[in-house]
Amino acid sequence: MVEGVAQDFSRNCQGCHRADGLGACNAVPRARDFVGLFTRIPEGREYLMRVPGVVWAMLDDERLAAVLNWMLRTYSAEQLAPDFVPFTAEEVREARKRPLANVLEVRGRLILKMQQQGLLPPGEDGFASAKCGR
């Protein structure tokens, strides 16, 4: 049985991000072995709290912060910054008030930065390696 934070994930996020965290090609970015990379660049932390799926999630700030932390640790612990500090309800509350209007543009900039820093191979953007239908 799934309970607590995992249950919040399964009911709010899993449909698209999938239980295996692989997402869907060209539609839903993968979380597995990927999403933690955002904690390695300064703008990444805020980015994660301002993407549409997070902003509009039907969860309160506390549970949402818990889901974010759970996803990072569950799907991408290896990529997590060594000095990663877990998200708090307070910062999530503030960040959610400012949804990213141009999410893909911002994301593109962050991905490029990660590629330039050698965190990601060229061509890997979290969509290219997401799960595709057969």
């Binding site: 009911r11 449909g15 692989l22 539609a27 997401a130 239908g133």
Partner: peptide, 11 residues
């Protein structure tokens, strides 16, 4: 037909 990798969820 092929299943989409994505779904929606219900209890």
């Amino acid at each position: 037909s092929d299943p989409a990798p994505t779904s929606w969820v219900g209890s």
